[in-house]
Amino acid sequence: MSTSTDLTLAIEDLTVSFDGFKAVDSLNLYIDKNELHVVIGPNGAGKTTVLDLICGKTKASSGSIKFLNKELTELAEHEIVRAGVGRKFQTPSIYENLTVFENLEVSYPYGRTVIGSLFFKRNNEVVKKIHQIAKEIMLEDVLDTESALLSHGQKQWLEIGMLLIQDPQLLMLDEPVAGMSVKEREQTAELLKKISKGRSVLVIEHDMEFVEQIAQKVTVLHQGKILAAGQMDKVQKDPKVIEVYLGH
């Protein structure tokens, strides 16, 4: 089908069915370089499934996912990550027994093999990078804190930091502001704008206010299919979208 493109992500005809139920149905989705793309939709629309498919957690029934012209559907999860795709889970998924510093160190993209990790050295470069990321995610003061003690919002940022340290070309975030306070939401919006420079970001979100703050392009999913796509203000006025999602 599509040959070489300069898109970061090109999803074409992607379908996955669970026992005949099509959670994602012939989906086409394109994400440009440096684009911050938001996917919204009611519960069960298939939003999280799309992320699962891209990062390899779920295998597609058919269709293709091309990331920088590389087919992802045939790769194992860790190979997809190494290709440059980072994914944040919906609930903060961090290592609670380790400190913030160690969480970032474990995510540092060197020493990824068994032998490599045994002889991995915490040199200045690593420490510098960790401090730089910690500053970006507003956690520089708590580097030595056990991460179980962080607030919910800080945990979400830490997980984002753990992805940033790998410098992915595509960052996927599953409901990054769920459960956050108003202030934390604002800070997260700022953070997202900052980190979307130089990479593509795909966000799944429920919170419309937050989406308005960050979105450039929006795709509305409904029952595994695209209902509408385009600029936020246009999508919001689309009568179909209002009916299934925004109306209530």
């Binding site: 190494r82 994914r87 609670e96 990824r112 997980e159 753990m162």
Partner: peptide
């Protein structure tokens, strides 16, 4: 503690 997070950080768990 979080096998999936390690896997999706690029490690072959």
């Amino acid at each position: 503690d979080k096998e999936d997070r390690v896997r999706f950080s690029g490690y072959d768990v």
